[in-house]
Design a protein around this nucleic acid. Sequence first.
DNA 1: GCGTTCGATGTTTGCGTAAACATCGGCTGC
DNA 2: GCAGCCGATGTTTACGCAAACATCGAACGC
Lengths: 402, 402
Amino acid sequence: METVDSAPGRGPVTGTAAAGEDPADPDPTGVGSAGVGPVGTDPAGQEPADGAAPSPRPRGGRRARASMADVARLAGVSSQTVSRVSNGYAGVNEETRRQVLAAMQELGYRPNSAARALKRGEFRTIGVITFSLATTGNVRTLEAIATSAAHEGYAVTLLPVAIPTQDEVRGAFSRLEELAVDAVIVIMEVHLLDAATIQLPPHVQVVVVDSDAGEHYTVVDTDQAGGTRTAVRHLLGLGHRTVWHLAGPEGSFAAQRRTDAWRAALTDAGRVPPELVRGDWSAESGYRAGLELAALDECTAVFAANDQMALGLLRAFHERGRRVPEDVSVIGFDDIPEASSFLPPLTTVHQDFAEVGRRCVAAVLSKMRHDGPERGTTLVPTRLVPRASTAPPPATQARTGG
Amino acid sequence: METVDSAPGRGPVTGTAAAGEDPADPDPTGVGSAGVGPVGTDPAGQEPADGAAPSPRPRGGRRARASMADVARLAGVSSQTVSRVSNGYAGVNEETRRQVLAAMQELGYRPNSAARALKRGEFRTIGVITFSLATTGNVRTLEAIATSAAHEGYAVTLLPVAIPTQDEVRGAFSRLEELAVDAVIVIMEVHLLDAATIQLPPHVQVVVVDSDAGEHYTVVDTDQAGGTRTAVRHLLGLGHRTVWHLAGPEGSFAAQRRTDAWRAALTDAGRVPPELVRGDWSAESGYRAGLELAALDECTAVFAANDQMALGLLRAFHERGRRVPEDVSVIGFDDIPEASSFLPPLTTVHQDFAEVGRRCVAAVLSKMRHDGPERGTTLVPTRLVPRASTAPPPATQARTGG
DNA sequence: GCGTTCGATGTTTGCGTAAACATCGGCTGC
DNA sequence: GCAGCCGATGTTTACGCAAACATCGAACGC
């Protein structure tokens, strides 16, 4: 509902088809901008007003959409020439082209994507399989994918998987084959994507987000480890002895990697990783974890695996009288838009979801075009956003006299 | 999704409905679960191992997908019979049906959706035009739409509009016509949907969310007015003299209606609506507004048009030493998951986005099937969620003695 | 001047499916 | 015992597009 983000200066998003360098006008009929061709306003059922064969094609009660043949007849050319114009092929006389375009506009002609797909064997559509749109990351990634895809002349079809079980996922993949997609991007914890049991449609390329399955698939992901290292070092740099960690749910690879990196960063710095606290990404779970952590006097710094849980931490600490950042520092992950309005504004690790989405699309298209298996992982870097929720530890706890 | 449906004794399934109570295995080919049909594992290029005509169809380097004809050949029937089995039509001998199903499974047959769409003239796909996925509401609605649509055997294609100008929207609609969708749901501020200039594809049905364009379109929306009334009355009921309002951006109909309803609710109760404060849905804008409001001693209750802005209010009030709820009550709108973790937990108006999504799909499908114009607005009720951010006003300000 | 080439255009064909129509037994009714 | 009917199956056709191939005339080379 809300929002209007009038960011100016966004790239010109071209339409579905004729996107790239295509010499042809992507909207040759001009229906888009000129509006009001006869199609929209005509009553119904009446044949295109040409002199030639009245072609008996009543079809239902409604007016049938104009086909290439209709355009061809009106323009006095063959349908193949219409096709050439429609696809911007060279080798059409300028005069002829103009006539065809005029006929297209008059009839409000639009290529029929089903026929086109049937003939060409591709749909110009990317499927996105996702389990949940409840998390910022998934949504932002999806949005970026949709935008990038549109840029490349591809549409995006959403394939929601209700319950993230192997069976459900496998079912989604199985359905895929009859779905109108050329490629698939999976935004999902990937242990559900067991390469051994998933039946991949033979011609469909797959790219996975949030996974370590780089050996089997092409993976694009945020540099979880790098971001985590940055977060941990930030806190250590402020003088904290060590850093507690509020982890994401067990099943999540993203959570797993953040946890691993947290532990590694501490160990590398010669610190002892405290016991892990686990949440489920939700603010509520962060709150519960915060109540536990608030009881620990020696806990002066917490790295939450996402911003929502950090929010819960803030509330719990507040309730328990632990001041942030004076008594405890809290750092999050994601940099959701609200993070700057938390109490206090949250220091966090910014993820570039837009870039992740863009690279997903780039990867999947490249796979389609070169047809190479191209496995491996692409990592998108993160950025530390220092705000007000982190500070040096209280004097008594400080390792250095910060 | 749709697909092969071997339901015995089923009436001739007219597509769509097939989903729900269907007793038949939705995936009779078993490719999904049994896995490893020859399709996935075969090298390439080799014809189905049947005795009959070797049919010269090498096609590219890759193995072509099995078509109905392939299945028919293997099963020793005509392709029409395969079609009948595939679509669950009655009038196929049980024995024959079994053979066909076996052949399908062996070849890993999947109906080709492009061909199907071409023949049937429908795509079984709903397009969703949305401007932004930055807001909870849009996302949750989208998710619900996707889920409901899947339930009905429809896929959902995302049509992002980069910049919400008339031109962009019109462009999206124009592109629509060649896109593979049967219907469209628009999640968008609808003044951009000027019925006069938008060229609607003739056969595409439209449902709009967040709009007052009920005269021109079918609209499904949250009962903004009702929710707002509830919020305002809640605050008045606590004893506040009047209620300030932090409104959403000017362009938004949702914001407009919340504002109107707020004013009406106050007037109806004989109170004087204070001056309006405007935000842009973001927490940041809420913060800025909060700084202003914090300066007003007489301001004891604020109704924020969404939860994010309420979050900003909380931060501003906190910074200025205005306690919530002791000094000021704050109520939000949406009930985002984080709202319960704000400081203090936010009293807010819960929106049932899932229901909105469901009704959108229901409405659009009903329009498609009955072909009726069916304009008008469907409202989904809201629910007040009382938490800790609202309380009676401070004694000096109270109208009634608390 | 005649064969060649090339640009512009037309014709044929087939993608995979499913509606419409055709066929072909056997069974019912009288 | 035969007309008629019905269930089961096959055959034809067309959906709209675009690749492949065909045609046709003009410009070109020698």
